[in-house]
């Protein structure tokens, strides 16, 4: 049984870490980009960003004043049991979100879409989003918080098989160029692409590709992995850098996720996880151990399974 107090306490720590500490994989990617960038203004911007991450950690202050829209991804091992059940879990995550908004502090970004009511705590109708995933075996629960920016850099389009890779490339470039101008997408970003599914799941896949995979990670399908490399290169050859200035740092990495779709369609979504790629993860074990990390490890073989039944591989499962 996993204690609900431990869940809430851990969630609070994660909110703080996500807002303040840039994940190492993104930092490594940005340092690499800064080394090759030769646009005068773009270079200056990247250097300022690197200093900013340092300042945020030293001062324990949020790395960006727009602290995004906090959301939760919860993954549970099949044998995990939570004290108070899922309702208590959701209450704990909502409390942690509200408390951290006041504590870090974060910007209270979440308002009612029509009445603009602001509870000043990032909690409201449907906020924070809480999404779930499950893994065979294991008595642990993974808490993942992502504080993604909420305005620019994301788009969806219904493409068809006849659009082909050429059509996918066009929409990819259109999204980067449109949102990259004046730096609205806050690039260089981790670009996530969702292909297939239905409209809603296509958006979910693309967002998760951007937020729940790390820089340098590759899709296990070798042809998709090749596309990821090609798209990263293509995005960085637009001639646009940070803030939309002349440069070559647009894409820190490109991650593609797919889902089976209608036989006549090829849905596509594009998402940009910005310069402040805020994510933090903890695994809570049933014996009370908590392990913090920055890789969500969301896309396991189980999450990408193609078959009707799932047979647990012979190799041992990580479990408490």
């Amino acid at each position: 049984m996993i204690s609900i107090d431990l869940i809430e306490k851990t969630a609070g720590v994660l909110m703080d870490k996500a807002a303040i500490e840039i994940p190492q994989d993104y930092l490594d990617g940005l340092e690499g980009a800064a080394e090759v960038e030769d646009g005068d203004l773009s270079s200056f911007v990247l250097q300022a960003m690197l200093e900013n991450y340092k300042a945020a950690k030293e001062d324990r202050r949020a790395m960006c004043g727009d602290t995004g829209c906090p959301r939760w991804y919860v993954k549970m091992g099949n044998d995990a049991r939570i004290e108070g059940g899922p309702v208590a879990l959701e209450a704990a995550l909502r409390r942690a979100t509200a408390d951290a908004t006041n504590g870090v502090p974060l910007r209270p970004n979440r308002v009612h879409p029509l009445w603009r009511t602001d509870h000043n705590n990032n909690v409201g109708i449907g906020a924070p989003e809480i999404e779930y995933g499950f893994e065979p075996g294991g008595e642990w629960i993974d808490l993942i918080t992502v504080h993604k920016g909420g305005l620019f850099g994301t788009d969806y389009r219904m493409l068809f098989p006849s659009d082909g890779i050429e059509g996918i490339k066009r929409f990819y470039l259109d999204s980067l160029v449109a949102f990259g101008k004046r730096g609205l997408a806050c690039q260089p970003a981790i670009i996530g692409i969702g292909l297939g599914g239905s409209k809603d799941t296509c958006m979910v896949l693309g967002k998760r590709a951007a937020c729940l995979r790390t820089v340098g990670d590759r899709n296990p399908d070798p042809k998709i992995a090749e596309l990821e490399d090609e798209f990263k290169e293509l995005g960085n050859s637009i001639g646009m850098g940070a803030m939309g200035f002349v440069g070559k740092s647009m894409v820190i990495d490109c991650n593609i996720e797919v889902g089976y779709c209608h036989t006549g369609g090829m849905q596509m979504s594009v998402h940009a996880f910005c310069l402040s790629s805020r994510r933090a993860v903890a695994r809570i074990h049933s014996d009370g151990r908590v392990e913090y990390r920055t890789d969500p490890e969301w896309f396991t073989p189980y999450q990408r399974r193609e078959t009707v039944e799932w047979e647990t591989p012979q190799c041992h499962e990580k479990s408490a």
């Binding site: 659009d163 050429e166 059509g167 066009r170 637009i238 001639g239 939309g244 002349v246």
Partner: peptide, 21 residues
């Protein structure tokens, strides 16, 4: 800056095609 970047865009878009719909 946009004007400078625009000079290169046609080359980047080579080999892509507009959406069917």
């Amino acid at each position: 800056e946009n004007a400078k970047i625009a000079e290169n865009l046609h080359r980047v878009y080579e080999g892509t095609r507009p959406a069917t719909l």
